[in-house]
């Protein structure tokens, strides 16, 4: 068994909604609501789920950019929530996050070469003489040209900025990289290039990735295991193969059927989810998916299912659905 590097333990993150003249908290956005999972060294875990389901919030609380409302985060056995500022800063070097919008994470007053150089010297000091060479090597890896090193972030196109953010995270040489929608703004050949690079670096340096994306094809390609989130909770978690070949949760199934085809003649046969995206302010009772689920029963409306394994499928395939067992047993009659 590989070493456990990250453990998320019953994590909750609520954001207060304030209102009125007293600015009192009237209610909460339950962005992340009781989530647990572990990530092993050298592994890639993908997180998928609808917009607003809490993916970025999970990432940000892992890095302690947000204080968890409840729960703990362990990185290499240390509880990050209990660390003092200085220790936390030291640990953070081992974890890098590439943000969904690179624009806000790059210092607008620094040239690319300085951004990258600064990142490189966080872990170890690079001799001045080799500085240029290393910056060039990094730029090349993400498909930028050497002469672009003199540019400021605002002098780059959207995709170019994204690649600078990727290069910067790599330059720090962390153990864990959290990637939040890092390839969605890139064209397909660039996507391929970056995914390829991430895989290679993983092999060479035993890197661990937490990979957030709404693009299921990309997640399938890069991940060893996949977590499916729905309104702040995990509804399914399995190895990539098991998840894509035998999805169990009705939500996962709907997601997989919605992958579009890149051709004007191909009719999109989407299993469009009926009903509204539920709000994390007042999540539905029982199973949060029940208002949109074709199989929902009275039980589903009242009782929240727990995330657990089922007898007939692969051991580590967990699903939060009252009918997980039935679905696993008679897949064909369900879908």
């Amino acid at each position: 068994m590989r070493k456990e590097i990250l453990k998320v333990d019953h994590l909750k993150k609520y954001f207060p909604i304030k209102s009125g003249i007293w600015n009192r908290t009237v209610t909460n956005i339950k962005a992340v609501d009781n989530i647990s999972f572990t990530v092993h060294e050298g592994e890639t875990v993908g997180i998928v789920g609808e917009s607003g389901c809490g993916k970025s919030t999970v990432a940000r609380t892992i890095l302690q950019l947000e204080q968890p409302t409840a729960g703990n985060i362990y990185f290499e056995g240390k509880n990050l929530c209990l660390l003092r500022k200085k220790e936390l800063r030291r640990k953070r070097k081992e974890m890098q996050m590439i943000f969904q919008h690179p624009h806000s994470s790059l210092n607008p007053r620094q040239r690319l070469k300085d951004i990258l150089y600064e990142a490189m010297s966080i872990q170890k000091v690079v001799p001045k003489a080799r500085k240029n060479e290393q910056v060039h090597a990094l730029l090349q890896k993400v498909g930028l040209q050497p002469h672009q090193q003199e540019r400021y972030p605002h002098e780059l196109s959207g995709g170019e900025k994204q690649r600078v953010a990727i290069a910067r995270a790599l330059a720090v040489q962390p153990k864990l990289i959290i990637c939040d929608e890092i390839v969605s703004s890139l064209d397909i050949s660039r996507q391929a290039q970056i995914l390829h690079l991430l895989k290679k670096l993983q092999q060479d340096f035993n890197l661990t990735y937490l990979f957030i994306s709404h693009d299921l094809e990309v997640v399938r390609y890069i991940s060893d295991r996949v977590i499916v989130m729905y309104v702040g909770q995990i509804v399914e978690m399995a190895t990539t193969q098991s998840l894509f070949e035998s999805p169990m949760h009705p939500y996962t199934h709907a997601l997989l059927s919605a992958i579009p085809t890149p051709h004007p003649k191909a009719k999109r046969k989407r299993l469009l989810l009926k009903g509204e995206v539920p709000s994390p302010v007042e999540p539905p009772s029982g199973c949060r998916f029940h208002p949109r689920c074709p199989f929902a029963t009275e039980t589903c409306k009242k009782v929240a299912p727990t995330l657990q394994g089922t007898k007939d499928v692969e051991q580590n395939h967990l699903v939060a659905c009252h009918y997980g067992e039935d679905i696993a047993r008679n897949r064909s009659s369900f879908f």
Partner: peptide
């Protein structure tokens, strides 16, 4: 619309 749906999953994109 410059890359209007890059951050959106397929259902919302649709």
């Amino acid at each position: 619309a410059d890359e209007p749906t890059t951050a959106l999953d397929v259902t919302i994109q649709a």
